[in-house]
Design a protein around this nucleic acid. Structure first.
Lengths: 202, 202
DNA sequence: ATATATAGTAAGCACTTACTCACCACAGGA
DNA sequence: TCCTGTGGTGAGTAAGTGCTTACTATATAT
């Protein structure tokens, strides 16, 4: 029961972490500073020692998320050596699994977009476009080498990401998982097969 | 400048309309009853003459949206006589165009899902599942008659809806339309072609 | 015209919100 | 041992918040 005295850095990081969790659960406007303080086990006042305004917590979250390239590079490492459908399978499985295990960031991003905060904007301008670029360039390469049909690589990339991300969103946020509980690998395989071969019988 | 005296019904409908617009712009928690009153040009008290609690405005919106089958039947009528890819083209174009013209309902639904209100839940349990059923059954029919490959019709339906709805969402809510402005018909054709033929060169 | 029902209001209640300020506790160098 | 810097708090404040009350204005039926 020893109440440790945190250093400023530790406390700062802890507050951001708690705030992120609560914002993703109840939105920026739906979360009170009292609540953050309570969850962090401190008084409200010390939040305002670290962050001049509640809004500043959002900026701190952005910094944290955009500097944490962990997930991104983790995926890249898993893609190494993969070819053909396996590249797409890996991406889809990674995204669906990640959001299934912890939908925090997806929710935070949605709240941010709806409430008009900068987080979603910055995320879109950097990470989202980046990922889309990566996929579109991969597709463009496959088109150039003749294994994919000629079409707009960016729209194709968005089609694929759309299947995957909308599936995650409906499962985790709209609660579709109450009605549909297909194993991830099966879903992924169907998505990738549709993306490669289409539905039409040859 | 004659300030007309509304009947109870007229006023009720007007308040719901204003509330829906504001909730979709700023969320339930982000909208105050004062604001609704101001926008409707009335005093706050009369909102509470019609709705006992602020929460009841949500129920009224649900009723309005779920009883307004206009859009649904409008789409069904447009689908009559269509075959093959045109069915899917029509659905995709309808959804993308609708959300482009007025993203109000999409936003409201997202807020509702995130804030944990009943609207999204009821909508999912009725309209969303209904639409998914329609599409899945259509796909199942195509599978049975041999023009589509054998696969899980519901996952396939969600793949298609995912492409379309995630595209709308990223365009209108995450602001992707600042970066990508492809004509709707082109996007729709690419999506439907991918869904039918896939990306692989034969 | 008068009565009555109902649309509508001004003002405020009890409570919550983000944010502040005067103050305390204690590790560590002098 | 006494300072001093820093982590931390209790008790506020002004500006909202949902919701209520006691009241007024006006359309309609008699």
């Amino acid at each position: 029961m020893a109440k440790k005295r945190f250093t400023a850095e530790e406390r700062y990081a802890q507050i951001v972490k708690v705030a992120m969790r609560l914002f993703s659960q109840k939105g920026f406007k739906g979360t009170t500073t009292r609540e953050i303080a309570k969850e962090a086990g401190i008084s409200e006042a010390i939040i305002f020692k670290h962050f001049a305004k509640k809004e500043d917590l959002y900026s701190a979250i952005i910094d944290m998320q955009c500097n944490d390239k962990q997930g991104q590079s983790f995926l890249m490492r898993r893609l190494e050596g993969k070819e053909g459908r396996d590249v797409f399978r890996e991406i889809a499985a990674f995204l669906i699994q990640m959001h299934q295990e912890d939908p925090t960031f997806m929710k935070l991003l949605m709240f941010s977009a709806l409430e008009g905060h900068k987080l979603s904007d910055i995320f879109i301008r950097t990470r989202a476009i980046e990922t889309l670029d990566y996929l579109a360039k991969h597709i463009a390469r496959l088109i150039k080498q003749g294994s994919f049909k000629k079409t707009d690589a960016y729209i194709a990339a968005r089609a694929f990401m759309g299947m995957v991300l909308h599936y995650s969103m409906t499962q985790e946020i709209y609660g579709m998982k109450r009605f549909f509980r297909t194993p991830v690998t099966k879903v992924v395989n169907i998505f990738v097969d549709i993306f490669f071969e289409g539905m039409e019988a040859h």
